[in-house]
Structures are given as C-alpha cells and as structure tokens.
Computed example of a mutant assay.
Amino acid sequence: MVIPVHDVLPVRRTPWVTYALIAINVVVFLLTPAARSTGVQATSVTQLCQQEAFYDRYSAIPAELTHDQQLARVPTGTAAVGRGGAVGCLVGPPSYHKIPALSVLYAMFLHGGWLHLLGNMLFLWVFGNNVEDRLGRVRFALFYLVCGYAAAYVFALANANSTQPLIGASGAIAGVLGAYLVLYPRARVWSLVPFLLFIPLRLPAWLVLGMWFVLQWVYSAGYAVSDAGSVAYLAHVVGFVLGALLAIPLRGRRPPVGYPVRR
C-alpha cells in the first residue's frame, strides 16, 4: 500500500466543490464526540456511550436501510452498572425520528476518529480536484453523492441484519478514485512507500489506485485479514467500480490543459 500525497496534473478551474466537501467534513467532525478523543488518553465509559448514541442516531445502519425503518431500541448515551458490577450503556426506545435514507447523507460526513478523517480527506484532496475539473462542479457534487449512496446501500443489502453503524466518506471518495483511474490512468502521483521507509516516488495513477482497489477487494472478499478494525471494504469496492463506470463515457472528451498525451 502506498500513500498518495500529490499529483502532477493541473486543473483549469478552482475545485470549489472539492474544497467545500473537505471543509464540511472537517467542521462536522469537530462538532462530533469523536473529535474530543485523540486516541492517547483513556476514554471514559460515559464518553463511549455518548459516542455510541450519537452514531446510532446519525449514521447509516444496514438493518434500518434494508427495512426502511429505524431500530426499536437504541443506545441512550447513558452509562449504567449492571449485575456483577459490569458497566455498560443503557438501551431504550429512541427519543427521535430517524429517516434511514437521509442517514446515508449524514453518515457521509461523519468519521470515527482523526486518522479516519485525515486519510479520507487526503485522498479527496489529491484526486478530487481533477475529477471535478472534468465533470464540472454540479455534476461532480451529484456524482459524489450517487457513489456514496450506492456504496452504502449495496453494503447494507449484503449485511441486511447488521446494526453496526456505517460512517465515513470512503464510499463516495472511492467513486472519485475509480473515476480518476479511468480518466487519468497515466497521470503521475507522488506517493510515499511505507516499506521503503516512506521514500517519495512518482508513480503512475493506474499503479497507485490499482493497488488500492485490489487491496480493498481482497479484504472485502475475505482473502486476507486487516488490522484496521471494522472497515466496510465492500462499500469501497462498490463506490470505486461505480465511479469508474460512470467516468467511461467521458474518456473520449478533450482532457484538461497540461494533461500528458502520448504522440
């Protein structure tokens, strides 16, 4: 796995939608309970219960999406001591009305921690501007949302009874990566290679994004075990494939100024 940090493909216009998406994701994250946890200090049970209640309310939950109905019992955000002195989170009827379809939109701007947020925003920063440049601002915004929704719903259908909250912009950003691969396969991307002591290399986009996709597919298919925790790899695969398919009709159009063309 390599870490992309910058591509060398210029754009013809300022990618305001990409900038806006990054800004919204950062602002929303700062307003969520997860922003108060750095991963260094210990998190209290009360804080964990509050986070769990928050994400159950605003995240996309597969069981809710497949049945188009919110769960009957959800975490209340309150910690309690049970039998034998065990500490846990209270569960009860929801005090709010939740529209499952809208929860997908909310979930696309939620993240579980700083690493989750920064990793997603890095990929959006590196690859989003050129895809927006090719699609145009309005179509790029719609494209982003369509990929995010498709990724969430396909993942939900594959995990129809799961009550595990689904959050993050990864499905939508995976769509951006798929489109970039189709539109600019030969573009060069400066990337850090961990197993080479993070030496920066100028690699072709087809290699960087192809490796990323293969890794997501391997994990989603269960051929390998990731230590990244509970990650919706299938949503990444779906978003990427859909983004690539939607970008195919644009391949024949004139590329942006500065795009390297073979003669």
Score class of each variant (00 low, 15 high):
V2F: 05
V5K: 00
V5C: 11
V11Q: 11
T14A: 09
P15A: 14
V17S: 03
V17R: 08
L21Y: 06
I22A: 04
F29V: 00
F29N: 02
T32V: 14
P33R: 14
P33E: 10
A53P: 05
L65S: 07
H67I: 05
D68G: 02
T76E: 08
G77K: 09
A79Y: 04
A80H: 02
H97A: 08
K98E: 05
I99P: 01
A101G: 00
S103G: 14
Y106S: 08
G119N: 06
G119V: 10
G119L: 15
G119S: 14
M121S: 05
M121F: 09
L122M: 08
F123W: 05
W125L: 05
F127K: 05
G128L: 10
N130Y: 04
G136T: 06
G136Q: 11
V138I: 13
R139K: 08
F140N: 11
Y144R: 02
V146P: 02
Y149K: 12
A150K: 11
V154N: 04
L166T: 15
I167H: 14
S170L: 03
G171F: 02
G171D: 13
I173R: 14
A174R: 10
A174F: 10
L177K: 12
L177C: 09
Y180P: 02
L181N: 11
V182F: 01
Y184T: 03
S191G: 02
P194S: 04
P200T: 00
L203G: 04
A205E: 06
V208K: 06
L209S: 02
M211V: 07
V214N: 02
V218L: 14
Y219C: 15
S220Q: 05
V225L: 03
G229Q: 09
Y233N: 14
L234C: 10
A235I: 11
V237N: 13
F240Q: 03
A247G: 15
P249M: 15
R251A: 12
G252P: 05
R254P: 08
P256N: 12
G258A: 02
P260A: 14
V261F: 01
